[in-house]
Write a protein that binds this DNA or RNA. Structure first.
Lengths: 233, 233
DNA sequence: CACTTTGTATGTTTTAAAGCATCAAAGTTA
DNA sequence: TAACTTTGATGCTTTAAAACATACAAAGTG
């Protein structure tokens, strides 16, 4: 169960939050333009084709952002973690969402009204610049993914995805188990391969002692070797 | 030969230029922070790994922006046309370039100093917002490309690339010939396929009367059918 | 509780696209 | 203009990954 005691204060006072850099006056006003929503596991936050309702900040939980491709096959373009921003690309480009967001686990999302973002936040050049920086990094990531997903072989793509999950969500207290509960299908959709091939290749990695699998629990046993497999393609 | 008479005036006074929306004072100051460079065909403007030297605007010519992938295989991530902005992603994310830019033809590029961009342009919220919008659109494009390049079959990918070239550069006076002189290898690198397959599939499209080829001149004979081939994957 | 659905695991077959080889045409340089 | 290099065109072979087929376990559902 989530800590439902989380409130707006905790969001604006956390240095990792994008709203942290607003000045006090702006923060005060933000209170009137913000709302919190709770989602269970596997719920849509927004769907491809929806009109953006605001600027979304994932307060707690984990979310996958994906696009539907040929024959409904989905490609995960990004994973979000707490205090990550979601759905802002469509808002800023004034388009409908071209990707969907679904929770991987119980999550808390706060929505900030477009009015506040446009008339207040974006007038603050620190905020604007932070957004520019975020978009630039994400664009760099997306371009890199395009290349690796098209050019690397299955093993390389899967290794890269596992390392990506490690970077994004880190480990449990044991220091080896990935701190994310994700289906084989989602691993496949993250790595541009079929579910069968994700399962098969995970098994191979486990046989080779690079990882250990116990249901959905994945332990990274040899990150260096995964790096090498990822680099080799 | 390029019209070398092009100057800073022509850049700031063109409504399609991002600098058009600066106020007069900012425009005046811009003059002292701008320089023009001329490139011949197939010259590098910047290379993957280079440190960004400034904010670049393609004044005239055509440029491909690409990343090196597995085994040196290149993937074109974007094509630029006059008054398009290049190399700004790396500048704003404060990273080294993660892609290279090479001219497809004789080109003119203007460089604006990072100081002017940071201390002046980005303080103008109209400019910042234009950049945010540009990045957002490009990110949407990149995410879409990831999906189509990984999921569509060869015919779909090539059809999409031809339509992309059409959208970007348009037609010659005859209304059918693509206004870009591009090698089969570049078409392949744009479409995530080998040069052989690009050549082969172009021939097939020509046999099917969707296009006509005469050396590097490509005529789009049936754009609707190309759209259909592109959509079907 | 049985019953259906969903997720995981593997083996087998098929296929799209890469890889390779060869040749012709067009450009470039000596 | 001859020699060389690059680019374009096509056929043939190989291969990586999809597609398909079961089987079985786990998790929901009536």
């Amino acid at each position: 169960m989530l800590n439902s005691g989380l409130g707006v204060k905790d969001i604006v006072d956390n240095p990792k939050s994008i709203f942290y850099l607003l000045n006090q006056e702006e923060k005060d006003e933000l209170q009137h333009h913000i709302s919190l929503a709770h989602y269970r596991r596997n719920e849509f936050i927004f769907k491809e084709g929806d009109k953006p309702t605001g600027f979304l900040l994932l307060v707690d939980g984990k979310v996958k952002i994906f696009k539907e491709g040929v024959g409904g096959r989905e490609q995960i373009v990004r994973m979000a973690k707490p205090l990550g921003v979601i759905g802002y690309r469509a808002l800023f480009s004034d388009e409908i969402h071209n990707s969907s967001a679904v929770t991987l686990e119980e999550s808390l999302v706060c929505t900030v009204s477009p009015e506040f973002i446009y008339t207040r936040a974006l007038k603050n050049s620190d905020f604007s610049f932070k957004i520019i920086r975020k978009l630039s990094k994400e664009l760099g990531f997306s371009n890199s993914r395009t290349v690796t997903l098209t050019q690397k072989h299955i093993r390389g793509r899967l290794a890269e995805s596992l390392l990506l999950l490690k970077e994004k969500y880190g480990f449990e207290h044991d220091g080896t188990t990935l701190k994310v509960y994700i289906s084989r299908e989602d691993i496949a959709n993250l790595s541009n391969m079929t579910t069968s091939n994700a399962i098969r290749t995970l098994s191979t990695f486990a046989n080779e002692k690079m990882i250990a699998i116990d249901g959905r629990k994945i332990k990274i046993l040899d990150a260096n070797r995964l790096e090498r497999v990822s680099k080799l393609g």
